[in-house]
Simulated scan of single mutants.
Amino acid sequence: MTERKHHRPMTPGDRFLESVAGGVDPIEVREAADRAATLLVRGARETGDPQVAERLLHLADTEGIEAIAEVWAGSPADTLAGCLWRLYLLRSWVYADPVEVARQFDAGRTRAQVARVVAGVAEPPGPEELQTMVDEVLRGIAGSDFADVLLRAAAFARVVATGRAALEHDPAEVRHTLTLAEQLETAGHAELAHRLG
């Protein structure tokens, strides 16, 4: 049996640690995401420029929903970043399958009439009407009270959740949509109370 020499383990230097960790501090990423969300929401309203609203509307189209998710998906629901993520997710979902979402909205609108009115979808609620509504909601980031944007999106999600339940969708899917509605509604009330940051 040969005798093995034991070596003292090498201690990695700073460069090694940076390469393992990706060189990105998660706290800095979160702070940058929060700053970007604040600039988009608060700054867009101050400009009064209709082109800003259009750029905000198409942000997910130009940057990709995956890029937005990377920045904002981990943000809590009661932050501007978390609200933006949920709003863009809602738009992406409506555009991904407008016919099915219209069917779900239609099934829920008679059971959630107050929410239907707040959502403000044209009658009858077809695919184009839903896409128009969700685009108006996102344009509202720049042109409306942000609380109204959140409450309108929450009402829309609530009607769809009600419709999914009526159509006997997967209960987990219904709960997820209802949770989205509740998070947006809570954020809308926080915005009204000037507590959303």
Rank of each mutant, 00 (worst) to 15 (best):
R86N: 04
R116I: 09
L89I: 02
T79W: 07
E70Y: 08
G126E: 15
V94Q: 00
E123C: 09
A67D: 10
G82M: 01
A81H: 03
V121K: 09
Q104S: 14
A69P: 00
Y95R: 08
L90F: 01
L80H: 11
E70C: 06
A69L: 00
Y95F: 08
V117W: 12
A122I: 15
G82T: 05
V71Q: 10
F105T: 03
V117F: 13
G74L: 11
T79R: 13
W72T: 00
L84Q: 09
A107T: 12
D106G: 08
P124D: 11
D97A: 10
V118F: 14
A69I: 00
W72G: 00
G126T: 15
E100R: 14
V118H: 13
C83P: 11
E100Q: 11
Y88Q: 05
V114N: 07
R116M: 11
Y88P: 02
R103C: 02
A107S: 13
P76M: 04
I68N: 02
D78E: 11
R116L: 10
T110C: 10
E70P: 00
L89P: 00
A81S: 06
A112M: 07
A96T: 03
C83M: 07
A119P: 14
D106H: 09
V99D: 07
A77C: 05
R109Y: 09
P125R: 14
R109S: 09
A73H: 04
A115R: 13
C83G: 10
S75H: 06
V121S: 05
Y95P: 00
A77M: 05
V99W: 05
E100K: 12
L89R: 10
W72I: 02
V71G: 03
V99T: 03
A122D: 15
G126S: 15
A77N: 07
E100F: 09
A122R: 15
V117P: 11
E70I: 08
A77H: 11
L80I: 09
E123L: 12
G82W: 02
P98D: 02
A115C: 13
A73Q: 10
T79Y: 11
A67M: 09
V118Y: 13
E123T: 12
G120D: 12
V121P: 07
S92I: 03
G126C: 15
V118Q: 12
W85Y: 07
V114K: 08
V121A: 13
D78Q: 11
R103Q: 04
A122Y: 15
T79A: 10
A81D: 05
Q113G: 08
T79D: 12
L84C: 02
A77Q: 08
A102E: 04
P76Y: 01
R91M: 06
D106Y: 07
Q113R: 14
D106R: 11
W72E: 01
A119G: 14
Y95E: 04
V101N: 01
S75G: 03
R109L: 10
Q104F: 12
G82H: 01
A102S: 12
R116K: 11
L84A: 03
G82S: 02
R86W: 03
P98M: 01
A67G: 06
R103T: 05
A69S: 08
S92Y: 06
L90W: 00
P124W: 14
W72Q: 00
L87F: 07
